[in-house]
């Protein structure tokens, strides 16, 4: 074994895989890039025998996705979010929400709303924990299936955000039930989610989205179709209905969640822009949008029909969702 000094590899300023780029890598790049070693061998993702079934799942639904890019690892999150900054960001956001909850509790928010509105909340707000949980499950799928760590990480923090929304709902359901005992809060949500006409569109879309196994199609279904529809109808329009019904807390709480949703939309836009650097991808993405959009419109229409104080809710919600799609460069 010779160890010739002339051949010795010199130390670098960063990881070897980043050392060719001209820009000095950010902390985000140092800790987030090129981490999925299981994308290295497209024919056998894992260091087990080829016949281990999990190889097939990843080959079929990730490596052989119709959406192609020669270097998914080059994707960068425009927010440059990393774990450390995610917690700083969301601890601050949660401090804000805690403040809201405290203030409105002191002010007697729940005592000032009408029984009718409390019943509406029971039917149209408390069941969001199922919807948000479906988004949480969807993001967890995208995390494990995305073809680059920088894409997986978008879903990592988004799954956290969806659990955040679900937590707000669970807390508020419990709090509302203290004032409005006996109307089914904390008890009837599953029944509403499974049977109430207002929810069936979203439930159908969520269930079908959750069994969309191709990572790229699932990304489009969740991030382009379902989530903007949820923001449009369940966060924005329901929040407006809350304001109409002296429930300022609900509208502020939903607005706080929309900050997360808007961040997800900026990230989705960047991912789609990146995917479209391969022009072959444009018709594939648009075809998925065309295939799924009717279900989202149906979900919005069914849900917004229940918001009787807001006759234009469905139209506005569809317009919001369409505007989000357009911001992604999609029809």
């Amino acid at each position: 074994m010779s160890d010739s000094q002339t051949d010795t590899l010199k130390p670098l300023k960063t990881w070897s895989h980043l050392s060719k780029q001209r820009k000095r890598p950010s902390e985000y790049e140092v800790v987030s890039t090129n981490l999925h070693f299981h994308t290295n061998n497209p024919d056998k993702p894992f260091e087990v025998g080829r016949d281990a079934k999990m190889n097939d799942w990843y080959i079929k639904y990730r490596n052989n996705s119709p959406l192609k890019h020669q270097g998914w690892d080059a994707f960068r999150d425009p927010e440059q979010l990393i774990y450390r900054t995610y917690n700083i960001l969301q601890e601050g956001q949660e401090a804000y929400v805690t403040g809201l909850l405290d203030q409105f509790s002191e002010r007697g928010n729940d005592q000032m709303i009408s029984k009718q509105w409390a019943q509406e909340l029971n039917r149209l707000y408390a069941p969001t924990r199922y919807l948000y949980h479906a988004l949480q499950m969807g993001a967890s799928y995208l995390h494990q299936m995305s073809p680059a760590s920088t894409i997986s990480n978008l879903a990592t923090y988004q799954a956290g955000d969806h659990l955040r929304w679900l937590t707000h709902t669970a807390y508020r359901t419990c709090e509302l039930a203290k004032t409005w005992d006996g109307i089914g809060l904390g008890e009837n949500e599953r029944n509403h989610w499974e049977n109430d006409a207002a929810w069936q569109g979203f439930r159908e879309l969520a269930e079908k989205a959750l069994i969309t196994w191709d990572w790229a199609e699932a990304t489009i279904v969740f991030d382009v179709i379902l989530k903007p529809a949820v923001s449009a109808a369940v966060q924005k329009q329901l929040g407006l209905a809350g304001a109409e019904n002296a429930d300022t807390l609900l509208s502020l709480l939903n607005d706080a969640q929309l900050r997360d949703a808007e961040r997800h939309q900026r990230q989705t836009k960047a991912l789609i822009d990146f995917a479209l650097t391969n022009t072959d991808n444009a018709p594939i993405i648009q075809a998925w949008v065309d295939k799924w959009q009717p279900l989202a419109d149906k979900a919005i229409n069914a849900y917004c029909a229940a918001l009787t104080d807001l006759p234009d809710a469905a139209e506005e919600a569809r317009a919001y969702a369409a505007a989000v799609r357009q911001s992604f460069g999609l029809k």
């Binding site: 924990r129 199922y130 949980h133 659990l163 679900l166 937590t167 709902t169 669970a170 807390y171 359901t173 419990c174 709090e175 904390g186 949500e189 599953r190 989610w193 499974e194 439930r203 159908e204 269930e207 079908k208 959750l210 069994i211």
Partner: peptide, 15 residues
Amino acid sequence: WYDLTRATNWTPSYV
């Protein structure tokens, strides 16, 4: 309220 955060199983019917 913790239990409500994990009362999230439902019976699917579209799939």
